[in-house]
Write a protein that binds this DNA or RNA. Sequence first.
DNA 1: TTAACCTCTAATATATTTGTCATCGTTATT
DNA 2: AATAACGATGACAAATATATTAGAGGTTAA
Lengths: 220, 220
Amino acid sequence: MIDILIVEDNKELADVLCDFLRAEQYTVSACQTAEKGLALYEKYGARLVVLDIMLPGKDGFYVLEKVREKSNTPVLIVSAKTAKDDKLTGLDLGADDYIEKPYDIDIMLAKIRGIFKRRYSLDELVDGSLRINKSSRTIIKGDMEMEMTEKEFELLTLLIENRGRTLSKEYLFNTIWGSDSESEQQTLTVHIKRLREKIEEDPKKPQKILTVWGVGYKYL
Amino acid sequence: MIDILIVEDNKELADVLCDFLRAEQYTVSACQTAEKGLALYEKYGARLVVLDIMLPGKDGFYVLEKVREKSNTPVLIVSAKTAKDDKLTGLDLGADDYIEKPYDIDIMLAKIRGIFKRRYSLDELVDGSLRINKSSRTIIKGDMEMEMTEKEFELLTLLIENRGRTLSKEYLFNTIWGSDSESEQQTLTVHIKRLREKIEEDPKKPQKILTVWGVGYKYL
DNA sequence: TTAACCTCTAATATATTTGTCATCGTTATT
DNA sequence: AATAACGATGACAAATATATTAGAGGTTAA
């Protein structure tokens, strides 16, 4: 499966977009006609189709219709026309978004990121073999999915959001438990231990959650 | 649950849009501030939020962020600014679409129809050996067909529409029962149990509707 | 009006998370 | 090397959250 399939007859424009997208780690394929686009789509599938409407031969709407017959794959329509009709046709045919040429590359990238985020919920923090998904509240280590408790989840996200920085035990404790908490700071070390068991390759030799002696912990 | 929640401080504009949408059989609520919008959202839930960015007091981004903390509810952003920044912020925060003021009502309606179509139009949800038919409100598990009650159906579709995402018990409860309901959240767990009996292979070991301890539930 | 069904409640049982403690290991300091 | 301070660990207890069951009350359709 390709991440993004671009159907665009202006090769120069397509190349620029490809470069930017690849820089953001998407896998991208591009082609210049409706027929080739459909062929690629049918052969490999795609997570998003970026579709120019004005194409030589069959136009973009043709591709959109064919794609919609098979799936809900998101389609982002690109059009040089400013005609309202174009926009309406595209949206009614089930396009997910619409952008006009000439477009600002930042906006295009934002739209694409947005589609991926919404559709494939990339609200993930990926770090080596560790993937932390905020909305589903899961950690995946390698291919094992492990569930986290509330406290563990809070602690881990707090550490990761301050990646590389050492957070004092006091700060961690006050932030998560509240400074008026009855619990003892000792509790924190127990939670750190439990977290390490879940995310570290070898919990005895932590590589991610490091102890900073006399101060606190930091996530690397 | 409301179909469409409109947050727009220009009352005249909101009224026009309301009329058109009601003519298309959507149930619509409108309000003029971020706070009221959030309050309505939390109280009743919505299937789509149409959100003006420029509001007196807290702005639309504030609402968007709060909504995203709880669910995947589609959000359509409306902005008078043509500033690129606005657009970028909205899309990066997870808005589903963007339209600029002044907008053409036909385009607005097309966008809304599109969002509903993409998001809610599938009558049959197939997931492994499980088939959920929305219009007949039946579930087919293997070769057994079972009917769902109203509450079960609402709960299941809400979970499925936010598949993979953990929904808090509070959110589920408020969206289905309304926050002014007399019922207790305890009721929710009973309904979850009944749903599991209908859709899970082994209700004792749920594979679809998972408990997220201390938070709520998620559908996988 | 009755019968069937849906929904909520309350009581109880079960499960999970969180906190505490005693003890052991490690590091820094003298 | 001895010591003191700190952190790690494992076992257990307490606190919290969820699951289950049965039944009361309400709603709907025949």
